[in-house]
């Protein structure tokens, strides 16, 4: 590792040195047993999301009333629902919807929130005041309530759920980013870049953003977990994914009426939500450990 940069040609040299902290974090993460467990679960989910059609033993909406409410068996490992649909197939197929909603909504929150946080933290003054006051106002609403209010305006559906969850998490990203920018802004390397006459955009992208990325990465992982929960809750309330498309939240809603007769209808979709959220939280916590360790090493 110590000799490679010297031997390598100039361009590779630069790339290798820039990537080093990332590689180190990744290696540390892969040595974190809990994180690996979480990552394995997430990998399984991604496979389900991508190849659900091939993996699921039955189509999502193969209605067969004669096989309604059957308990788990070899033919239907998770049993069947009130319309005779295979619960396991629907749990597998719903993975793509859940992941899609959470990834899209967190991306919205990430892009908008980080951008606002960078501007607010770096420039200060009135942009900072405006962004932070708006964030304060948004923080005054409980997350689910704000999401539901947005759905009330835009009407229920998949796209609305993504927008609603995305908007709700914008202020969190803005706050996290701003707080880190405030501490990085006064660092000598940032001041040096500014005094060399670098354009603010360049300073932000090249010097500030890479150094505030750690808390943002941790926040992203934790927000993905919350987004999965929020999507499930919205769909449970009938405000998210619309039937007959399979979704874990909606399956739980349907299960509620049959709780006495068919426990499997409610247990398995809920387990899917729980395991997914747990995996994301574990990875998020591990990332926090790993990235903090790197920070103290560098300090």
């Amino acid at each position: 590792m110590t000799t490679t940069p010297r031997l390598a040609p100039e361009p590779t040299h630069g790339t290798a040195r820039r990537r080093a902290p990332w590689v180190r974090s990744l290696v540390a993460l892969l040595h974190h047993k809990v994180a690996v467990a979480g990552l394995v679960v997430l990998a399984v989910l991604v496979v389900c999301a991508l190849f659900g059609e091939q993996l699921a033993p039955y189509p999502a909406n193969a209605v067969d009333i004669s096989r309604a409410l059957q308990p788990p068996s070899t033919a239907h490992p998770f049993g069947t629902d009130d319309l005779g649909r295979d619960v396991m197939s629907r749990v597998i197929l719903a993975a793509s919807v859940s992941l899609q909603v959470s990834v899209v909504s967190v991306t919205i929150a990430l892009v908008v929130g980080v951008l606002l946080g960078l501007v607010a933290g770096y420039f200060g003054g009135w942009p900072d005041t405006v962004v932070m006051r708006v964030a304060d106002v948004m923080f005054a609403f409980p997350v689910m309530l704000l999401a539901i209010a947005i759905v009330a305006v835009l009407g229920p559906g998949l796209t609305t759920a993504m927008i609603a969850i995305g908007v709700v998490y914008v202020p969190i990203f803005a706050r996290v980013t701003r707080a880190s920018v405030l501490s990085v802004r006064e660092e000598p390397y940032v001041r040096a870049a500014v005094s060399l006459g670098a354009h603010p955009g360049r300073v932000i992208v090249r010097h500030v953003l890479p150094n505030v990325s750690a808390p943002i990465i941790v926040q992203t992982s934790l927000s993905l977990a919350f987004a999965i929960l929020s999507e499930a809750a919205l769909s449970f309330l009938g405000l998210g994914v619309q039937p007959p498309a399979p979704s874990w939240g909606r399956m739980l809603f349907d299960a509620k009426a049959f709780l006495d007769q068919a426990w499997w209808m409610g247990v398995f979709p809920g387990l899917a939500v729980f395991v997914t959220v747990l995996a994301l939280n574990l990875v998020g916590d591990a990332l926090r450990d790993v990235l903090d360790v790197r920070k103290t090493v560098n300090d």
Binding site: A232, A233, L252, L259, V267, F274, V277, N281
Partner: peptide
């Protein structure tokens, strides 16, 4: 990590 409505159902 447990969804509250799932815990409620359990």
């Amino acid at each position: 990590s447990v969804p509250d409505f799932w815990m409620a159902m359990l």
